[in-house]
Design a protein around this nucleic acid. Structure first.
Lengths: 232, 232
DNA sequence: TCAAAAGTGTTGTCCGTACACCCATGA
DNA sequence: TCATGGGTGTACGGACAACACTTTTGA
């Protein structure tokens, strides 16, 4: 236990990779920083963790401040502690990722804090240059989500409550970055028996309306217990 | 950023779950604490991270201090930041796990630091009561290793360089906590084509000596790239 | 010769994959 | 009537699971 270095910042931060899915495309919520360092740069929403809140609470708070949403699925990703990741000295960050139903958002999120000028959804395939090591954090979270969606039904956290099988398939395709066979995908997905077929259909489309489904939460819980292997 | 709580410790710690495998049994290296709080209790090796070392370096250092070994396979597990996990105030810990070849150890590890009285290997199935939230950290690391061994060849990090197929099978059985079929296991394992059959056999056993194998590192690298699914 | 573990194949089932056409709808 | 996506079945091959006996060795 030494203290032979001056510590600029005795605490640590948390950063959150916020995924959304809209119109067949994965998106990330980024903020434009309003504070030095990296003022004016795009970055992950994140901030210092208070001394009287858990890290989990801090991420929830930060996410709320940027989206006005609570009760979002989120999970800790990794802790980054490189000595040079922050220009002002050694600041460790505990990174999380969150999966968000984009239709829950009535409008563009408005940051309620000073440290961000704006919060904007960016397509995952076309991200701007990012502050700190945030690009690295994002890459790591994509790997994690890509793996996790293979054995855990987290995909549904990104979809609206009622969704079509095509939407579900597009989501898997976006995360895995490859095309899947429609018939095989549907066969497999329905075989898991975790979807409930609704007596409702899409509206407002100029072609045959697709049937809507939602999660059958009883069976969904079983899948979580048994950790089935998901579609490939 | 508040500071309305007295912080005893402005930094954070790292703890390491060290796995070993010997005589068909998984073991953990625990220390007996020589400092308050929890003086005299068993705990995971861990200590404060210095301000001029990365977290990765800190874990390596701590592991070296307890085993005299370097170059061990290790990976970050999770960061624990509950407000009440440490009786002296909010101390965040970044937990790692390490996989160790037990035959590398000439003798019992001797701690070279003051904060531990002794370091002892404990069978995973018979652990003493532990300090802090260390039991929780261990449970989480077991889940992680259990999953990871299914898609990544980390098992070999726990075995000696030359090993028998039975040893390999026993390791999987210990981690998954269930029996596997010998014929199916061998068939599958040899089909991955990552093992090199050696012209050597076990010695000193009072029954038919088993053939020794070692990793074929070329093919092993390929498996790491492609992330094959391992035996079930 | 006995005890202990090594080593070895076949069969059935399930799962993943490849692949193409008709249907329903709104414009 | 056309354009657009919705919806459907079959056949093959590979992987997994179940299952029991003979061989080798040292004591």
């Amino acid at each position: 236990m030494q203290s032979n270095l001056p510590h600029l910042q005795s605490t640590f931060t948390t950063d959150c990779v916020i995924f959304g899915f809209h119109e067949g495309e994965l998106k990330l919520l980024l903020i434009e920083r309003n504070e030095y360092p990296f003022k004016g740069w795009w970055a992950l929403p994140g901030f210092f963790v208070e001394n009287n809140e858990t890290i989990d609470d801090a991420v929830k708070r930060i996410l709320y401040e940027h989206t006005g949403l609570r009760g979002i699925y989120m999970e800790q990703l990794y802790t980054f502690g490189d000595l040079k990741r922050h220009p002002q000295g050694r600041i460790v960050t505990v990174a999380y990722y969150a999966l968000l139903r984009l239709d829950d958002l009535k409008s563009q999120p408005e940051p309620v804090t000073d440290y961000a000028r704006q919060a904007v959804w960016h397509p995952l395939n076309n991200l701007p240059e990012l502050a700190f090591d945030h690009r690295h954090i994002i890459d790591k979270s994509i790997s994690k989500v890509r793996r996790k969606i293979s054995y855990s039904p987290i995909a549904f956290e990104l979809l609206p409550e009622k969704f079509t099988l095509t939407q579900l398939q597009q989501l898997y395709e976006a995360i895995w970055d490859r095309k899947l066979d429609k018939r095989n995908f549907r066969k497999k997905m329905l075989n898991y028996n975790i979807l409930k077929e609704l007596p409702e259909f899409q509206r407002g489309v100029s072609y045959r309306a697709a049937r809507l489904y939602k999660l059958d939460k009883r069976k969904y819980a079983k899948v979580f217990q048994n950790e089935l292997t998901f579609a490939r």
